[in-house]
Amino acid sequence: MKIVLHRLQLKDKLLGVIVPILVLGAWQYSVSQKLCSELILIPPLTLLKTLVELAQSGDLTLNILASLKRVLIGFLLGGTSGFVIGIFMALSPLLNRIFGPLIKALQQVPEFAWMPLIIMFLGIDEFAKFFFVAIGAFYPMVFNTYQGVSGVPEKYHELARVFEFKRFRYLTKVIIPCALPSIITGIRLSLGLSWMFVVGAELFGSDSGVGYLMTWGRSVFQIDLVMAGLVLVGVIGFVMNVILEIGEKQFLLWREPVNGRHA
């Protein structure tokens, strides 16, 4: 049974490669047959070469690190405040009444609309970027934390009362673990948006970072640089997601029903 399953998965994976290969093939073909200008559509191999060159010159690491630093700081700022406010809002009806409507109202504004305002107040330096990323990280975190914590069933509240739990222990042993699936969803969404906002902030104005790489490529009309940036943006976003998924599995081991169930 296991072997059959394995084979099936391999076949599935092969099916999944068809489209990318076709796209790459058509792309390479159209360039080699001069169907369109190399200035507009560079061949995949040139893209690969550009990436290698960027890596060799050290530009790649430099810009990736710059972006990662921004994403991390912005995410920590926005995510942490979202987490804390979410918990407080879920536990205190008063705070929920005070902050809930304001946060909901502010959420109606598309995040990128804040960018011009932020730049006017804070300039276009590092701090403005952190701030902008933090806005993106904040919303999913505050909503998912709120939802998770307010969804803790009454029966667990009762249990904590019966065992005479103090506030802090109640929070760490019951509320947060119970809300964890929702909080982790928040973290994932939050980090994903942070990444998008970093790239956006860098496109808007920056002298380093993956987004900068793309703007620069555009301004010197080097489409290979733009596409290299695009690939980097996708790959880094993907890797962050994979890391989070692994972390999630570790944290939520208890949710997995085990195969050999005891009767």
């Binding site: 029966k155 667990y156 249990l159 065992f163 005479e164 739990f165 222990r169 042993k173 019951v174 673990p177 119970c178 964890l180 939520l252 208890w254 949710r255």
Partner: peptide
């Protein structure tokens, strides 16, 4: 009413903080 995120041992120790 066992807490699903705690092991059997941790559940038994729930009130023994």
């Amino acid at each position: 009413r066992l807490l699903p995120w705690l092991t059997v041992g941790e559940n038994i120790a729930f009130g023994l903080d």
